[in-house]
Nucleic acid binder design. Sequence first.
DNA 1: TAAAAAATCGAGCGTTCGCTCTATATTGAC
DNA 2: GTCAATATAGAGCGAACGCTCGATTTTTTA
Lengths: 236, 236
Amino acid sequence: MDYQSFCQKYQPTNQQLYTEFYQLFKKKFSVKNERIAVEKLSRIIAATFKLSASQSFANMSLRQLSNESGLSMGGLYAYIQNKRQLALYIHEFLSHFVIKTINQVTNEKECNTLECIIKTHIYLSEFLQPWFFFAFMESKNLSRDEKKAAIQSDLLMENKLIKVIKLGQDEEVYSTILKAETVASLTKPLLSEWYLKRWKYKKRDMSIDMYCTAVMIFIERGLTSPHSLSKFENHE
Amino acid sequence: MDYQSFCQKYQPTNQQLYTEFYQLFKKKFSVKNERIAVEKLSRIIAATFKLSASQSFANMSLRQLSNESGLSMGGLYAYIQNKRQLALYIHEFLSHFVIKTINQVTNEKECNTLECIIKTHIYLSEFLQPWFFFAFMESKNLSRDEKKAAIQSDLLMENKLIKVIKLGQDEEVYSTILKAETVASLTKPLLSEWYLKRWKYKKRDMSIDMYCTAVMIFIERGLTSPHSLSKFENHE
DNA sequence: TAAAAAATCGAGCGTTCGCTCTATATTGAC
DNA sequence: GTCAATATAGAGCGAACGCTCGATTTTTTA
């Protein structure tokens, strides 16, 4: 699996993405025409990402959002009840979408390896980069319950990691020197790194598949040279 | 080196920390009495961390800050020219303090190993956790030039990592399958993880030195079991 | 193509913001 | 204890905020 083939299977068009978004929160919107709503939602969310990436969601005013999205203040409020709700929509949809995709991918039998789970996360965070970035940065402004809901996809990912690492440990392919939970916890920031510091790797001309390979090598065999591997043999 | 011995050498008291803070920005404060200033600055910064951790710096109002710190609005403005400046002080002082300490530590000869550099960062981020957390979360609100200044300590850390990894690679202790720059880039999020998700490890009763050990094992030898190490021998 | 329904507009509301400024309190030198 | 010098208080300023609502435009229906 590489990024291109993943996209063909799982990356929705903008149209598809915001149709799904619209369907999920249909009841809350006063706009009933799907075609119109999808178009406007797409512009609202895009503007939200642009503005809150350069400042932050809190610093973004609804007048800025109105300008950037091309909707009037009133138009905006046909889609959001209030500013806070807008952030909640983003958190909730991302969690929904990630869970859906992870389940789709891991239901395919050949895709229950560590590499596959990691790639799924990194690939998802590539074409949904602004979503992931936003969710990471703004999650601390959520209430207790909201955070719990938004973190669901994170927990699913962590559990999938733990499960597959434990499997490898049982089969003695993976070392048990670290608990599977610990390895999973240390793996996750390597996944976040890609969407948090993407400009850094763009500048270095490191492609997403090169990054995935690097992460896999790093996780699986670490820094130690084969020349000095013998010292580990004594550990058991 | 463990956390306790590190603290004895390098952790300042609150008094010392804010005296250094006061000295660094002396010119900017209208308050000339050091004793008074140190006491007030300590309260202002502590209140800033408390409020912007639960909301965000942007969402924190100066009236809240006034309440939390116990100073009046006027009192507050004897120490800060404006809200933005307060954030700049924090970024700038942290960078200053981290650079100073890293240089101190790595000037000791026995302390130029990968482990030592990593531990220095994690230990620093432990007793300065709110500072690191704040700097990470709020850095994107800085202007181009301000960001450049605030990121200096980060660059120093990264360069120290690269240098020591290259050394290990030259001595064939470390593998060259990944470029030193790549390994350093992947190491950094493991350091941030500690101050970004500290509650998580607190809850698991994972001490800071256990975390350091886990990171070192993870970086140096990865996940692969000694039982299956032979497959790497073919790589060269 | 006319009427009804749906969607959008943006000036304006009350509130809160960052910040100032004068009056008051506290401090230190003699 | 007195008097400058220093530090703090908090009401009040204009600006910007989130948000509303009646007027208007666009779309759908028949």
